[in-house]
Simulated assay, not measured.
Amino acid sequence: MFNTKAFGDSKFRFQSLTLVFYLIGFVVVLAETIFHIYGKSLCLAEGCRIVESFVKGGDLILLIAGLVLFGVLIFLSSYKFPEKIKPLIEYIHSGILIAALSVEGYLLGFQLFIIKELCIFCLTVFGILFISICLRLFKKRLEMVYAFAGFVCLILITYFVNPEINLIPSSRYVLVYSRGCPHCEEVIQFCKTHSISVQTIEAKEISGILRTLKIEHVPVLFCDEGTTKKFIVGQAEIKEYLLSQAPQTTTQEGVCPIFEKEKCQ
């Protein structure tokens, strides 16, 4: 015989456990929000700062959204709704979790495939939502399968469609070239002749970035001058710039050094 009392107790335990995870999520986001107000963060990973730099309005927007999300989930899990609207409330509850995990899919994909840095805080929130959704699955809320489907779809989208911003090498000078481009080859040979250290990358490997910057021609030189970043387009302009940055040495023609006769001019 089916034990309805045991099933009811199990359902109550899952609901209580889900509420506990929502409370943990709310506390974590609230703590990060307070730290953020004072210019600090619970997350010391580089990925956290990179993700924040890409958010319009700053990290505070995501934190407020997280507080609202977990606040609503806590309310839906703890408030005693009338029996006649409970089914509707459950679907709303599930819909919010589906949307939340889908957003986490994009954020995780952004970190894995675009910036290639992980935000520990984001992973913590993702873990809380993931466990909460699994608990609802155990409660026979089969619509939670859509949450995982949305999560996987958003991760795949960020994998197949991304600007590949991380592919520009970290170097003072990076020369973007195309095979068969005589102007590119001329610049490369110029750098070899003058012993200028330049890292090269083929244009097709960062085509997304070039389109974003509205760069339609090669060669292109990306320059990292510390606080100043610039790019220079064109063979003559690149050669002129590199010569201007090269160390200047003064030499005299028609003389011979006394102690290094092999350097006679």
Rank of each mutant, 00 (worst) to 15 (best):
G58A: 03
G58L: 01
D59V: 14
L60E: 10
L63G: 11
L63N: 11
A65V: 09
G66E: 06
L67P: 02
V68K: 01
L69V: 02
F70N: 03
L73E: 12
I74M: 10
L76W: 03
Y79F: 11
Y79T: 03
Y79V: 07
K80Q: 13
K80R: 14
P82L: 09
I85S: 00
K86T: 14
I92L: 11
S94F: 10
I96K: 02
L101N: 11
L101F: 15
V103Q: 03
V103D: 00
Y106R: 02
L108H: 01
L108M: 04
L108W: 05
Q111T: 07
Q111S: 13
F113K: 04
I115M: 05
K116F: 15
E117C: 04
E117D: 12
F121W: 08
L123N: 10
L123M: 08
V125D: 01
F126M: 08
L129Q: 05
S132H: 02
I133F: 12
C134F: 15
L137I: 05
K139A: 15
K140G: 11
E143K: 15
M144P: 13
A147S: 10
A147F: 03
A149N: 05
G150Y: 04
C153S: 15
L154A: 07
I155S: 01
I155T: 06
L156G: 06
I157D: 10
I157T: 12
N162S: 03
P169Q: 04
L175H: 02
G180W: 01
C184W: 00
V187H: 05
F190Q: 00
H194L: 14
H194R: 08
I196T: 05
V198D: 06
Q199D: 10
E202C: 10
E202Q: 13
A203E: 12
